[in-house]
Amino acid sequence: MTHVENITLIKKTEVFMKKIGVIGCLPELPLEFPVEKPENSGNMIHAQAPLRMFDNAVYNKDYKKWYSQQSGFKDFVNSDCSHLIITLANSLSIDKPDEEKYKRLRLSLEQYDVPVVVFGLGIQKKNFDISDAKLGVEAVKLLEFLSERSRYLGVRGEFTKKVIEQSSSINNVYVTGCPSFFSYPEEFSKIKKNLENKNGRPAVSLTNMANEDERKVLAYAYSQKHFNIEPVSRITHSFYNELLNGSNPDLPYYWKGIKAKKYFGDIEDDSVKKYYLAYYRLFRQVKPWLEFNKEHVSYTYGTRFHVNMASILSGVPALWLVHDARTKELTDFHGLPSANIEDFSKYIEKGNVADLIDYTAFYERLGYLFENFNNYLTSNGLPEINTP
């Protein structure tokens, strides 16, 4: 019997009685992040999704709290779980493929006997051109394995789906959007009201400080005294730590280009340092992040997808600045308000950011998005989730 056929034999009562194993992204980060331990705090938002959706979901690092008699997570899943959910995020890359990593992941997943359900698989590519987007041998082997272990292979957007289909013979690819989107449905009704109220201070999040458009957006955020939410950078956080410790460090390298351009007037080192001490934020846990948004943020904008996702999961509006295929496929699928980063960097010279934030398409699409995601879950033998 195949794994797909086995799914049809899993009764709903069995799914509720058994646990659901979860592996993949980290749901919280250690104190060593990001200076000593590189990670992306946005992945916590993604990792929390199955744990929020299913009361019987058990993350692989936590299972021994309740199931210490098991010799390992693999044994726990194979004996006590109906499914294994894996949160994958930016797992495959066209620009910088890692074939050995893909092979290791496939071999590790082969240890599990239960259906494997994918959450959030995406393919990273800097530009939007799909004509030269081909996956390597080990990437295809991994995808073929995953497609055989579930009725549908879930991916985050149409771009990823097209790349997989033109790189392989896989024909059960299903676009779910980003699963983290579905983890706090009760907050979506608050976005419109908060957009109208405009209480709090805006917050920015950026990706590539070598990019002039993003440096300009940072200069704008600094000039307006907007919060600066950092999900990754060791360099930026090390600078901030030195400031907290009373040192007088040089500004991070990217400020040299910002100062030279004088985008929004002269910039002095001391004023930049005061800005970071007052408005810089980094989070290692999801709950305080969402609480911060609710209490202090009017809206967020920037190129970091999950920083903006953390915003709307708090009921706070966000504007996505599109800079790569990943952001475009996700904002398109979810109907999220977005602007091209190059156009936006010109717009902020005269325009008001809040005027670009329109949630009309989002609310029109919301019912379909939850219906579509629930179809993915139930087709793979998992329970439905609540809709807004």
Rank of each mutant, 00 (worst) to 15 (best):
N171L: 07
F362D: 08
T160L: 03
S91N: 13
Y152W: 12
M44C: 06
D324I: 01
K294M: 03
V322C: 03
P202S: 07
F54S: 13
T160M: 00
E39D: 15
P317R: 04
V322K: 00
K256P: 00
I341P: 04
T207P: 00
S82A: 14
I191C: 09
N60D: 10
Q111T: 14
I235E: 01
F188Y: 14
N386C: 04
Y63V: 12
V353Y: 01
K74R: 11
L195K: 14
V15D: 06
P252D: 08
N40G: 09
N56F: 15
I7N: 10
V58L: 10
E14D: 14
F76D: 11
E371S: 07
K74H: 13
T13L: 13
K192A: 15
N127V: 01
E349A: 06
N78P: 09
Y276T: 05
K103H: 08
I385V: 15
E14Y: 14
S183H: 00
K190P: 11
L244R: 12
L135N: 11
A139F: 09
I235Y: 02
D355C: 07
Y347M: 05
E242Q: 15
P115C: 09
P231E: 00
N374A: 09
M53E: 06
R234S: 06
P383T: 12
S233D: 02
K11N: 14
T378N: 11
S314H: 05
S131Y: 01
L31E: 07
K225V: 03
Y347I: 04
E196A: 15
P115R: 06
P34A: 02
G120I: 05
D132L: 01
L9Q: 14
N374H: 10
P50L: 01
L107Q: 10
V114Q: 05
K125C: 01
G265K: 04
L105G: 07
A278Q: 09
L109E: 05
V140K: 10
V58E: 08
R281P: 03
P97M: 13
G21R: 15
L26Q: 02
F283L: 00
S271C: 04
P383L: 12
G315H: 13
Y220P: 13
Q124K: 01
A221M: 04
P317K: 05
F239S: 05
I45T: 15
Q285N: 14
R151E: 13
E165K: 14
L366T: 12
K273P: 12
L382E: 07
E110L: 11
K161C: 12
N380A: 13
Q166M: 05
E100K: 14
K141N: 15
S180E: 14
L369V: 08
Y174E: 00
L206T: 01
G246K: 02
G351T: 12
V15P: 05
Q285W: 03
L143D: 07
L319Y: 09
H334R: 09
N78D: 12
I7H: 08
S271H: 05
L366Q: 15
I20V: 11
R106A: 14
T207V: 00
K162F: 03
K103G: 02
K162C: 03
T8A: 02
V15A: 04
F145P: 08
R284C: 01
D75V: 05
M17W: 06
